[in-house]
Design a protein around this nucleic acid. Structure first.
Lengths: 147, 147
DNA sequence: ATAGTCACTATCATTTTGCAAGCGACCTGC
DNA sequence: GCAGGTCGCTTGCAAAATGATAGTGACTAT
């Protein structure tokens, strides 16, 4: 685990998790995607303590995944919107959701539906080069020189 | 956030994160994938405190992502191997790694190489139905009845 | 017999999380 | 004009998780 931003490791997974590596942060992103952009909406939806939510939101702003925007001057009201980096993270949440449905999926579940086809989406991680799902072709790790 | 296993919520992301929603667990899975299957290898690679590693490993065993296997009777030695559910999680780690490379990717990084082509893999999450990357087509959420 | 490895456990300090209460800025009756 | 209500937090304190360090049991190797 790397916490030192000035001396990060070479593992991209670790690099990613430095930014969003906790559960609340991911659930906040999910809820913002669902349209719950305001503090009070998020607090009620998640059932999170207010101090914890405030801390997570400012961490996500600091990490560049969401941005705070004032949508009303009087009364002063803000909302949180996904940045490009935050939107880029959403497919990962979809993949985690697919895993959760498969391996921890008893009972009724919320699904995402493709509006054009009406079908539930089935997220799969593929290698864009080969088109093959990750895990179906042999891979090796390439470690950078650490001279 | 749901912690109650007898009364889980309807969000599949939450369901997934119930099982692996912390940073050490994901990094342990990554290292096991890399072939670091023994306690001492993991401890040295991750720089984690021994009590914390022991707890994470037994949590992952309890969550069904890894299994403990005795590979030597005398001296008694165990290793940790991925279960089917654990292997199913690896593509998510690849996707997180791709995100980390893109958005937090200064300096040298470890990469995964497709052995057949020699090319670095480029993980992308697609919808298996349409073949389109998640985020490129409009979706809606389908919430189950809560009568 | 002595030293060393491996896979942990035990103890205790530090850090993070979480609950409950409160606060400032504003709006909405009346 | 002032009591109550909403929103977006902060403060104070308890509880839980994490982490550093030391130690232990089962061996092997010399």
């Amino acid at each position: 685990m790397t916490d030192d931003k000035n001396n990060p490791g070479t593992c991209p997974v670790d690099r990613g998790l430095m930014r969003v590596g906790d559960r609340w942060s991911m659930l906040v992103l999910r809820d913002i995607e669902r349209g719950l952009t305001r503090y009070e909406q998020l607090r009620a939806s998640l059932g999170i303590a207010p101090n914890i939510l405030a801390r997570r939101l400012s961490a996500l702003v600091g990490a560049g995944l969401i941005a705070k925007r004032r949508y009303s001057q009087r009364p002063p009201r803000d909302e949180y919107l996904l940045t490009d980096a935050g939107r880029d993270f959403l497919p990962i949440l979809a993949a985690i959701g697919a895993w959760g449905s498969k391996h921890n999926g008893g009972g009724a579940l919320t699904r995402q539906i493709d509006i054009a086809t009406g079908e539930p989406v089935r997220p799969v991680v593929i290698d864009a080069n080969s088109g093959a799902p990750i895990g179906t072709r042999p891979l090796r790790f390439d470690y950078p020189d650490q001279a």
